[in-house]
Amino acid sequence: MKINQALDLDEAGLQERGARARERLLQEAMRIFADKGFAKASTREICQAAGTNVASIHYYFGDKAGLYRAVLLCPIEALTSEFANFDDPALSLEEALRCLMAAFLSPVGHGEGDEHAEHGMRLHLREMVEPSATYKELIAQHIQPHHQRVVGLLAKHVGVPGADDDALHQLAFALLAMVQDYCLSREFMKVLAPALLDGEAAVRKVLDRLVGYGVALVAHERAMRAVATD
Rank of each mutant, 00 (worst) to 15 (best):
L154P: 02
A78I: 09
S81T: 12
H142C: 12
Y135R: 06
G120K: 07
D87R: 10
R44P: 00
L168F: 04
A70H: 04
H116P: 01
G62W: 08
L79Y: 05
P75T: 05
Q144K: 12
H157M: 09
L125F: 04
F61P: 03
H157D: 02
D63Y: 07
Q48L: 14
F61W: 03
E137F: 09
F33V: 04
E94I: 05
A34D: 09
L125V: 14
T134R: 07
E45A: 15
R98Y: 12
Q170Y: 08
A70G: 11
I46Y: 11
G37Y: 02
Y59C: 02
R31K: 13
A29D: 08
V108M: 08
A65P: 00
P131E: 06
S106Y: 06
A163M: 04
E115A: 15
V150R: 11
R98H: 09
R31S: 11
L138Y: 08
L93W: 05
A167P: 01
R149I: 03
D88I: 06
A78C: 10
Q141W: 03
H58D: 11
Q48V: 13
V71G: 04
D165C: 11
R149P: 00
C74V: 14
L105P: 10
Q144H: 12
G66K: 01
E112H: 11
S42C: 11
I143R: 14
E118V: 13
S92Q: 04
L123A: 08
I139T: 09
T80L: 12
Q170C: 07
L67G: 02
V71F: 07
A39L: 13
V150G: 04
S92W: 01
